[in-house]
Write a protein that binds this DNA or RNA. Structure first.
Lengths: 345, 345
DNA sequence: CTGAAAGCGCTAACAG
DNA sequence: CTGTTAGCGCTTTCAG
């Protein structure tokens, strides 16, 4: 069916290796013959079989991306960044959804390995057993962990500066004049969220006012945010500002607050984390800490490509990307908030 | 490095072809030798090289998915459905983002073809020139068009029943008692949106009340929805309900309405289309027409897999998936709306 | 049931 | 600069 290098060789009267050279390097081949070969290739509508090439070169020019769920808008952004970078590096991207299930994850890895993928990016390995992690590390493929802080183990990582983000939120709210500030976050084990919380709390403590901030933990979902907000509003009605550990939680907070007849930002200031596309659409537009999601994807690919290039010395690389505060309309000075508190009293 | 079939042959004292048979079919091979071979393979931690296998079988067990942008939550859902189905069919999914750019799209197709992909799903071919479409059709790979109505050409299609969805919205609003209903949509050329508009208008006309609905066209984005809503509210202040051609436009409508001091649903009922995950989070939760996005992805893969199986007779298949109305809290009887209109007068 | 051999399409020494 | 020759790792006739 499809023309092969052999057909071109026959048609143009040279050897297949000459064809290969002419089509690839271009160098080390007579200008005339090269032109001729290329012309014949074009005439035959030749397209190289990358599978065959991969078999001999050992590189597949494919990268694997394992995320928990591409429907999570965070990962969709990361995936887009990864895909663009992969394309720029002449690779394509194989998408896998693990649902954070350890077995599923290992199956994907296995499958990718059997396809001789050049590298794998994944969401997390924390769900993996020690053996599984060892197996992974021993597989020989470059691996980079997405959205995971640098740790002492053997994998490369790409991650945003969560701690700085938490601090940013704290200082912003402080600057607005808030003194009764709460933080709503996920379970302690969650590395990223813990870093955000830590940055937040430390920045608050570093400020003159010494009051310990309220930190509530729950599920880091919309419902979780709403639930924590209700609890917080019950127990600490004097709070004037909330920092939610991610945007989706913040949406939940807003929902619960509105249900109680509170207005944002007049009665309650709210800061999120992530800067999802939806945070600008929501009402009011959410002030939030921007994570460079797209850049995380492309950075991961860069690391992978580098690792794939200098095969052998697999020295892991850790990239920590900067965050920034995006000021929108969910915060203001606490004047109105204090009013609310006194009204209640 | 990695153990090959050859290593197993040597270790177990049989020929490589026997190893291949033992590991694959299992049949036509002595039980004992098979067990032995399998044991040796396990001991050597053997994993087949699918690249090599692909070279001889001609199938890569990879499917390509070309969407305009995975960050569009609609496509993220489709992608998830496709990935799950691909995995179930023992294939993996290569993700491509075309931004609806014709050249980029063809580059992706080319790249996928060179990797001998088993089939391609794509968002659209409408941007492609006639030649490009012909080239595509002539390439021999199974192709299914995602989210495109069945047309007279050679490609398979998977698509939701947009017209029925429009009708559903109309009848729902009618049933609530609305008589002054508007539809906000995109440009005429957009097939899906036109179908929705048509279904909507026809259902309205089929009802007793003969009044022609207002239909405004603009950009089918958040901003577009907001803009059209402002215009509509200016020109037709007596409208009590709006059907937006998609959820994101509906969010824009809500935004603009709230800016004008209107409440949803008390002052204005609103129906969207898509049922994005965010439509439940938004305030108020949006009543909308659900499109089976996940199912569209998996259906596309099913079609592809079938097509790939019976090579040769490439008879295109068209799948039209059902939609349903999801009732949430953005609609109510128009009583309050009429009040508003009279208040203004 | 098993072995021998050919070959998928391409690259990469190695000679010339 | 170009041709010859080996394979990459696997499947698949074809004999035995």
């Amino acid at each position: 069916m499809a023309a092969t290098i052999k057909d071109i060789a026959r048609e143009s009267g040279v050897n297949i290796s000459t064809v290969s050279r002419a089509l690839n390097n271009g160098y080390g081949v007579n200008y005339q013959t090269r032109e001729h070969v290329i012309a014949v290739a074009a005439r035959l509508n030749y397209h190289p079989n990358r599978i065959a090439r991969g078999l001999v070169t050992g590189r597949s020019h494919s990268l694997g991306l394992i995320v928990s769920d591409i429907r999570n808008p965070f990962f969709a952004e990361v995936a887009r960044g990864a895909e663009d970078a992969a394309r720029a590096g002449n690779c394509d991207l194989v998408l896998c959804n693990s649902d954070l299930d350890a077995d599923k994850q290992m199956q994907y890895v296995q499958s990718l390995l059997e396809k001789r993928i050049d590298g794998i990016m994944m969401n997390s390995v924390s769900a993996l057993s020690r053996e599984q992690q060892a197996q992974l590390a021993g597989s020989g493929v470059p691996i980079v962990l997405l959205n995971r802080p640098a740790s002492n183990h053997t994998f490369s990582t790409v991650c945003a500066d969560n701690e700085a983000g938490g601090a940013l939120a704290a200082r912003y709210l402080l600057g607005l004049g808030h003194r009764k500030i709460a933080h709503l976050t996920g379970p302690r084990q969650h590395g990223n969220l813990s870093d955000r919380a830590q940055g937040f709390v430390r920045a608050l403590q570093a400020a003159e006012h010494q009051e310990q901030p309220v930190v509530l933990r729950g599920k880091f979902t919309f419902e979780g945010g709403a639930e924590l907000a209700r609890k917080l509003l019950d127990e600490h009605p004097d709070v004037t500002a909330i920092f939610a550990a991610n945007d989706v939680m913040a949406f939940g907070v807003a929902h619960a607050a509105i249900d109680r007849g509170l207005r944002i930002p007049e009665d309650l200031s709210l800061v999120g984390f992530d800067n999802l596309q939806f945070s600008v659409i929501v009402h009011p537009p959410l002030t939030t800490i921007h994570q460079p999601k797209y850049e995380m994807g492309s950075a991961a690919v860069d690391v992978l490509l580098r690792l794939a290039r200098d095969k052998g010395k697999q020295i892991p690389e850790h990239r920590r990307l900067g965050v920034e505060l995006i000021e929108r309309q969910s915060c203001m000075e606490p004047r109105a908030g204090l009013l609310r508190a006194s009204q209640r009293a």
